[in-house]
């Protein structure tokens, strides 16, 4: 089951570039939350701060607090254990090309030393079913490489890989931006189904996508969070002029 995320006074830098400024928000558990905003507004940096991927860049820096399930991930946890609880799906599908489909899904568990064959089979099947890929790949699980799938299938494979470690939070950084409309709608259906079991944070450029899948939406601009509210309110009656300008297409 998912857990809630509380972010307080989060600031992030890339070198001298202050990419996130004083972000405060509460992301509810077991819901999908969308983050929208123009390119470079800091929304990707924000999700990367939620699993401490931001700091894998040597020039990156973070201050503030992020509590996932009540536990401060910067104060009392190491990055590795956070990333075992918080799964992530990237903008471009990045399956492991040298591994079979099966090994791709099992990678997270195998990495952590999980070796029970029978249970591994079950987890792989369940994850692939959850990511709506099972029917397409069940016949060549161990025959085909992860890279042999189509772009949309690869992205669902990456979702299955993230789900296999049973995360409490699933971060998705523009998961459909590199995909065609059909694959995109499959991913969206998937998010819709998964959000009852996981806390999902999805970054997107596509405002219709935010409107379709998320209960809550946050609007980012120039490293600040301008508005965070229910998706319905953001898209029908935003309180901030800048949000209105953005969603009506006047800029961005």
């Amino acid at each position: 089951m998912g857990v809630s995320i509380e972010v307080q006074n989060l600031n992030a830098w890339y070198g001298a570039n202050h990419t996130l400024q004083d972000i405060n928000l509460n992301i509810p558990a077991n819901h999908a939350t969308a983050l929208i905003g123009p390119s470079g507004c800091g929304k990707s940096t924000f999700v990367r701060c939620l699993n401490r991927m931001h700091e894998t860049n040597p020039i990156a820096r973070v201050t503030g607090s992020v509590k996932i399930g009540g536990r401060d991930i910067y104060e009392d946890a190491k990055p590795v254990e956070i990333r075992r609880r918080v799964g992530m799906v990237f903008q471009r599908p990045n399956p492991f090309p040298t591994m079979s489909i099966y090994d791709n899904v099992a990678a997270g568990l195998k990495l952590n030393g999980f070796r029970k064959r029978h249970e591994l089979d079950e987890v792989v099947e369940k994850s692939l079913k959850n990511s709506a890929l099972w029917d397409e790949v069940k016949d060549d699980l161990k025959k085909k490489s992860g890279a042999s799938l189509s772009g949309g299938q690869q992205q669902r494979l990456c979702i299955a890989r993230a789900l296999a470690v049973d995360p409490e939070v699933l971060l998705m950084d523009e998961p459909a931006s590199a995909l065609d409309p059909v694959s995109t709608s499959k991913i969206e259906d998937l998010i819709f189904q998964l959000k009852s079991q996981y806390t999902i944070v999805i970054v997107t450029h596509n405002m219709q996508q935010a409107a379709r899948v998320a209960e809550k939406t946050g609007f980012f601009l120039n490293g600040r969070m301008v508005e965070f509210d229910s998706t319905h309110k953001i898209f029908t009656n935003p309180s901030d002029k800048r949000t209105e300008d953005y969603i009506t297409g006047r800029f961005g």
């Binding site: 699993n51 991927m53 990045n94 492991f96």
Partner: peptide
Amino acid sequence: PHSQREAVLALGA
């Protein structure tokens, strides 16, 4: 590619 490293890191490696 860097994305391969990130993919593994994101799994808690």
